[in-house]
């Protein structure tokens, strides 16, 4: 494994190793690993099982400024927008408000949400 120090701060390397069978191992490499070369280090890891992925600092313990380059193989993190969409209550309240405001403006566009017009329970 090759690690690169992009930001400049010497830090311990907490690693989450996931094996192909789904088992996980957490490992902490002390900051002393940087003592000979503070810009780039290589660590050899020998395990009996095949490793599926390795992630640096999965518990957000270090002062890392960019978590997007901490994983091998790489993965695209979920964006703010996806996290926002996941929160149903916030999203519904916003959708209702957008629909209300659109209608108030003359109803030129009601695409935000289809509001059922029949009262509940009426068949």
């Amino acid at each position: 494994m090759d690690f690169e120090n992009i930001g400049g701060l010497v830090t311990p390397l907490p690693l989450l190793i996931t094996y192909t069978d789904g088992n996980e191992e957490f490992m902490m490499i002390p900051a002393e690993i940087w003592r000979r070369n503070h810009l780039a280090v290589t660590k050899m890891l020998i395990r009996d099982q095949r490793i599926a992925s390795i992630e640096v600092d999965p518990r957000r313990e270090t002062a890392d400024a960019d978590f997007s380059n901490n994983r091998y193989p790489g993965r695209i993190d979920r964006s703010r927008l996806e996290l926002y969409k996941q929160d149903d209550e916030t999203r519904d309240m916003m959708a209702d408000m957008l629909a209300t405001l659109r209608e108030a403006k003359g109803g030129e566009d009601k695409s935000a949400r289809a509001v059922p017009l029949e009262p509940a329970g009426k068949e």
């Binding site: 703010r80 927008l81 969409k85 916030t90 999203r91």
Partner: peptide, 18 residues
């Protein structure tokens, strides 16, 4: 473009479309 919403993020406000 579908309008998703808007939220605050510190001194910024983010508006989402999709």
């Amino acid at each position: 473009l579908e309008l998703i919403g808007a939220e605050m993020d510190g001194e910024f406000v983010l508006v989402y479309q999709e």
